[in-house]
């Protein structure tokens, strides 16, 4: 599943909100959602629109976990590291997945195919351990199960 639509008009996103500093995060979120990352050009546009200095916008974009300034892979995998998931071994699952994809830590594979991220609790503790692959919850996941799902995506 391709995460980024390629025909989204960034100006349309910018114009969704009034040009005030308090909408900075809204805009960054919408851009992140549409393009999967916030390019420097997009950041500049947002600053122009909201009147926030670029350095402050950059600080915000790097402060919050959900923003990425680098393009993300075509497939997004979140592994939950909430307490319940941790107790049920999600740490090992995440490590194994990253090892299999050749990643040192959370991040994007070189071919831009996968991005693995860890999240601190998705609030689905009853399903621990949980992973979310391209928006689909994978309840009670195991390393082999997750690997299979991931590999299937790569073959598409």
């Amino acid at each position: 599943m391709a995460q980024t639509a390629i025909d989204i008009d960034i100006d349309e996103i910018i114009e969704r909100y009034p040009g005030k500093p308090e909408y900075l995060i809204f805009l960054l979120q919408d851009i992140q959602a549409a393009f999967n990352y916030i390019s420097s050009e997009a950041l500049t546009l947002v600053c122009d629109h909201t009147g926030v200095p670029e350095s402050q916008a950059y600080a915000v974009a790097t402060f919050y976990n959900s923003f990425s300034l680098e393009p993300k892979g075509e497939n997004l995998i979140h592994v939950c590291l909430g307490t319940a998931c941790h107790l049920k071994g999600s740490g090992l699952i995440a490590e194994n997945l990253m090892r299999r994809l050749g990643l040192d830590g959370p991040g994007t594979t070189e071919d831009l195919k996968y991005t693995v991220e860890t999240v601190n609790c998705l609030g689905a503790c009853a399903l621990a351990p949980v992973a979310v692959v391209n928006g689909q919850y994978q309840p009670k996941v195991t390393s082999p199960k997750l690997m299979k799902t991931v590999q299937k995506l790569g073959d598409e």
């Binding site: 420097s40 950041l43 200095p53 670029e54 350095s55 402050q56 916008a57 950059y58 600080a59 790097t62 402060f63």
Partner: peptide, 18 residues
């Protein structure tokens, strides 16, 4: 407003954008 904190927590640093 040329510089800001970048990142957060233990990874935080100081610098201009990018």
């Amino acid at each position: 407003n040329a510089i800001s904190t970048v990142g957060r927590g233990a990874q935080k640093e100081i610098g201009s954008p990018y």
